[in-house]
């Protein structure tokens, strides 16, 4: 560790610091700052920004958090957070099913994962929203129209990402050496106890970076729910562009918002990974 730092110092001493700087990051930040200035000083960019984030006009009084950050951004964040929470649950269940010795559970899990993998995300969103949800509503005797489009979007994203996370959970569990399960079992723990208290805590620590990456991926894929007319920032941008023909402003603002969110998240994730690395 110390040797690496020393080497880095030496490099900066003979001017090669220019080679080491993260220029890509600086370029992205310059883009973000430029957009921020444009929004501040340019009337058209400002209007587009306020519309896309979902708060045209009424910025004077922000009664609550949603009003402050804007309805559009709130929908994007809310959809991602809730869908990701459910996909974690689905992914854990399917991941455990995937390695289960029970033939039925294992095949169910593989069926789910392979089915989802074989269909484009956009198509799955339509299928879940207009086929699966009505079908389940009918099965449990509920009212199909009672399920909002935003809820359908959340269910769709959760189902899609649950399949990806299942593979991550499976790999994480399989990365723990067999001796851990054997030691736990020979102390008299049940398979479930060993999984819950011995295997999963270690597996989850190993897969946290991968889960973080998928969270960022889901934040981006949440833009697809605009096809269900859910008013996330993508849908807001489309509406604004469609009615004002300000395509450049609308989509630059949209790009700016996504990039700002994903960059913040991935920097947080790197920082977190480094902290985790120190503790291992």
């Amino acid at each position: 560790m110390a040797a690496v730092e020393k080497q880095a110092n030496k490099q900066s001493a003979d001017g090669s610091i220019w080679r080491e700087l993260p220029w890509w990051l600086i370029a992205i930040i310059v883009f973000l700052i430029t957009m921020g200035i444009l929004i501040f000083v340019q009337e058209e960019f400002n209007r587009a920004f306020l519309f896309v984030k979902g708060e045209l006009g009424s910025l004077e009084d922000f009664p609550d958090l949603v009003a402050m950050i804007g309805k559009g951004i709130s929908v994007t964040i809310y959809t991602t957070l809730v869908a990701f929470t459910f996909s974690l649950l689905l992914g854990l269940l399917a991941g455990l099913g995937r390695i289960s010795s029970n033939v039925i559970l294992r095949n169910l899990a593989i069926f789910y994962v392979e089915f989802v993998r074989g269909v484009p995300t956009l198509v799955l969103i339509f299928t879940v929203a207009f086929v699966l949800v009505p079908w389940i509503a009918e099965l449990i005797g509920g009212e199909n129209s009672g399920v909002s489009m935003n809820s359908r979007a959340i269910i769709a994203l959760a189902v899609i990402y649950g399949a990806f996370l299942a593979e991550i959970f499976r790999a994480g569990i399989e990365s723990i050496s067999r001796g851990q399960m054997e030691a736990a079992r020979s102390l008299g723990m049940t398979h479930g106890q060993a999984m819950r208290y011995i295997i999963l805590p270690q597996a989850i620590r190993n897969i946290l970076p991968a889960l973080g990456n998928d969270f960022i991926a889901m934040l981006k894929d949440s833009s697809l729910v605009s096809v269900l007319a859910v008013r996330d920032i993508t849908q807001q941008a489309r509406l604004y562009a469609g009615s004002t023909f300000r395509f450049r402003e609308s989509y630059l603002i949209l790009t700016f918002l996504y990039l700002g969110m994903t960059l913040t998240l991935s920097l947080l994730l790197r920082w977190f990974e480094r902290r985790l690395g120190k503790n291992v």
Binding site: S177, G179, E182, A183, A184, S186, L187
Partner: peptide, 10 residues
Amino acid sequence: GMVFQQFNLF
């Protein structure tokens, strides 16, 4: 009780 070659502590 069982003791393993690789310890297998948690």
